[in-house]
């Protein structure tokens, strides 16, 4: 399986700066999104640090002995554990940085990292950015929001309708950089030819309903154009937060795609 991916980020219409960051690598099959928070523009620093550390981790810039961080989870593959370690490393680094600089105190970031290894997708998640799977005309959120409101809904302390209008929607129960140790959600999924992945910050998911996202990615069929359309929609609906979106189309690697690659190479 391979990814055909594009990503876009936009400040939105209300916020004075963009605290979102992302990283995509078709070769490594790695997609990462982070939505930072904190005063004095430190949210930007936290999300940037998270992205850089995870990228470096996969580019093998970080030494071997620092590789496994936290407990190895036997339930999941080595790849998933690797991504989990990368995220834990990022947490440590952000936490340390926030302790060393008073202006950065309390900075943090959400994080979603997915890695495609042949057919298996590894998902590592902290915070309220989201990973969606679009398959056979349905859209499904693959991550649980680490927000107070979501936890309350899950425990039936709030209804979904009450949650929609709650003024506590932005309160996270987990984020990178806040504490020395972090509990990350790990998950795995087998992908099929034709699947579509969407990773987005809450600036998209709070502005554009899931079903609209589904329509865009299935109709547009081009990752860059889909990202742009989604960002325009979020801004049309108010653009209350920074908006970042990654759209990836999953395709079977076959001889046609190799031929196309070769053709592109010749065209250069």
């Amino acid at each position: 399986m391979k990814l055909i991916v594009a990503a876009r980020t936009d400040q939105g219409l209300v916020r004075p700066n963009n605290e979102d960051n992302f990283y995509i690598s078709e070769e490594n099959g790695l997609l990462v999104i982070a939505d930072g928070m904190g005063g004095h523009a430190s949210g930007e620093i936290a999300s940037k640090m998270a992205i850089d550390i995870i990228r470096d981790y996969f580019d093998n810039i970080i030494g071997e002995k620092e590789k496994l961080i936290g407990k190895y989870n036997e339930e999941f593959s080595e790849t998933t554990n690797r991504v989990g370690s990368a995220v834990r490393l990022a947490n440590m680094a952000i936490h340390e940085a926030s302790q060393s600089n008073p202006e950065w105190q309390g900075m943090g970031t959400t994080l979603d990292a997915v890695s495609l290894n042949d057919k298996r997708l590894s998902i590592v998640h902290v915070g309220d950015s989201r990973v969606y799977l679009v398959r056979a005309g349905y859209i499904e959120q693959l991550t649980d929001d680490h927000t107070l409101v979501h936890e309350q809904v899950r425990r039936e302390l709030l209804t979904k309708e009450e949650a929609e209008v709650s003024d506590m929607k932005h309160i996270l129960t987990r984020a990178l950089g806040i504490r020395e140790e972090i509990d990350v959600d790990l998950d795995e999924l087998t992908l099929a030819d034709g699947d579509i992945l969407i990773l987005c910050s809450d600036g998209l998911s709070t502005m554009v309903p899931d079903d609209d996202m589904l329509s865009v990615v299935t109709l547009v069929n081009d990752p860059a154009a889909a990202c742009e359309t989604l960002i325009d929609m979020a801004n049309d609906n108010g653009g209350k937060d920074n908006i970042t979106v990654i759209v990836a189309y999953i395709r079977k690697s076959n001889w046609v795609s190799y031929l196309l690659k070769l053709l592109q190479w010749f065209r250069r």
Binding site: L148, I171, I178
Partner: peptide
């Protein structure tokens, strides 16, 4: 501001 994202203590 309640619009800002924030984390709360466990």
């Amino acid at each position: 501001s309640m619009d800002e994202t924030m984390v709360i203590d466990p």
